[in-house]
Amino acid sequence: MSSPSNRRTFLKIVLLSLCTFPRRVEARQRFGLTVKRNFLRPPGAVSEEFFAGKCIRCGRCVEVCPYRCVSPLGLKHGVLAGTPMIDVEQIPCYLCMKCVEICPSGALQKIAQEKTRMGLAIVDQQSCFAWQDQTLCRTCYSVCPFPDKAIRLEQFRPVIDERYCTGCGICTHACPVSRQRGGKAINIEPIYATAFSLPSDDDTVTR
């Protein structure tokens, strides 16, 4: 029925794939997370350790997003290919929560808008115009969906309150300072992206 050469080819293929795939996963873990500054998961995402296992790459979050901010990762990201990402420097998340509602696999968990923790906005005081006393810039304050809560002005300088900041990235997108990628004066750091990161005061981080 089967010639030995066919079986040999088949075994070779199996062995080859066994050799290549673990390395790829390992490399991903060694070189850190795909989620990085201003490059975040959609709202309600489970932590990175479980995301690759839970997301079924159906792309419905990408299709449903009315702002087109969610995009799938490419094949060069290995096992994470096809998982959704938001590059807030390009288009931020406006927290419409549509992607959360349609996710069929539970990779994006149902979560209230204000309890979303995609990351935390961090003001870079070295490059912020207001902190450097260059101009009276309050762009981030005026665009923030939770003004006087997530971002408030202290002596005309923006200050973030991590109890309210959802990490939506609207402030990052609007910030006039931009030197290179991740070089805005206010950036979103995905500090809640892994299960081992510190939770915020109220336990809103999806584990």
Binding site: F21, G53, V79, L80, A81, G82
Partner: peptide, 9 residues
């Protein structure tokens, strides 16, 4: 074994 769903991507 890998903890990564292969067929999905």
């Amino acid at each position: 074994l890998l903890g990564a769903p292969l067929f999905v991507f």
